[in-house]
């Protein structure tokens, strides 16, 4: 199967501290994959590198076969049109209403009629359970509602690659389950490739068939979610079990 995402020997350091050290990741088109790891191990950084928001120090990044890290500004803009990203802090535009935030990617693409934009925004907001909040400003929303608006904005343009940074952080278990259900339905409909970073390891394991784990700049696990408990790596086992004793 063709690769939607391919990173080869990806490196990124801040000062003398390497956050990513020769990381190799390959995601097939239409695949759903989870990324876990302790705090500050470069999970969000990896997503930003895949979106071209950060420059790598070494290695290669390919998105849908096109080299991202050596792209010109115009090529990068073109590649980003096929990528949807949910940020850890939601990154909602403060001066826009919920409706305008969600409609924004469609309005800016210029390829969708006003009628279709209205309909898609309405459908997406209903899917994330935010019908009736269209005219509110982000400052008037709770943390969970902001997360769902950001999710709606990432999904509305139906990009081929979706990168989610903590999509369920701050949400209650019922809403979390609904969000995963929504992502599953969206993926089944659009066949988008999804990479999810989450601290909710148990919830993520139930949703994604494949997990990656980053630790100390290296990829310590890349395999099926249901086999991660029996990984030979003691660091991986301790992390997923949440055990107090161990190398972590």
């Amino acid at each position: 199967m063709t690769a939607m995402v391919e990173c080869r020997s990806l490196c990124k350091s801040f000062g003398v501290r390497p956050l990513l050290d020769r990381v190799n990741v390959r995601l097939a088109s239409g695949e759903i994959c989870g990324l876990i790891g302790s705090a500050a191990t470069g999970k969000s950084l990896l997503l930003k590198l895949l979106c071209g928001l950060q420059a790598s120090d070494g290695g290669e990044i390919f998105i849908a076969g096109r080299r991202l890290d050596a792209s010109s500004k115009e090529e990068l803009q073109q590649s980003r049109k096929h990528i949807g990203m949910l940020f850890q802090n939601n990154a909602l535009f403060d001066f826009m209403t919920v409706r305008d935030n969600v409609a924004f990617p469609l309005v800016r693409s210029g390829a969708t009629s006003a009628e279709e934009i209205r309909e898609r925004v309405h459908q997406t907001l209903r899917a994330v359970g935010l019908s009736g909040s269209e005219e509110k400003l982000p400052a008037e929303l709770s943390g969970g509602m902001k997360k769902r608006v950001a999710l709606a904005r990432a999904l509305v343009a139906r990009p081929a690659l979706l990168l989610f940074d903590e999509p369920t952080a701050g949400l209650d278990p019922v809403t979390t389950a609904r969000i995963y259900e929504l992502l599953g339905a969206e993926q089944a409909r659009t066949r988008a490739t999804m990479l999810l970073v989450s601290s909710d390891v148990d919830g993520l394991r139930r949703f994604v068939p494949r997990l990656l784990m980053l630790h100390a700049g290296r990829l310590r696990y890349d395999g099926p979610s249901d086999k991660i408990d029996s990984s030979e790596d003691e660091v991986v086992r301790q992390f997923v079990r949440g055990a107090d004793e161990g190398p972590l």
Binding site: K48, C51, G52, L53, Q77, Q78, R80, K81, I83, M85, F87, Q88, N89, N90, A91, L92, F93, D94, F104, P105, R108
Partner: peptide, 16 residues
């Protein structure tokens, strides 16, 4: 504030 809350990155991620 837009910079520290990743809104600027959000724009760039939307190819803007």
């Amino acid at each position: 504030t837009m910079t520290v809350t990743e809104q600027i990155d959000g724009l760039r991620a939307l190819a803007i």
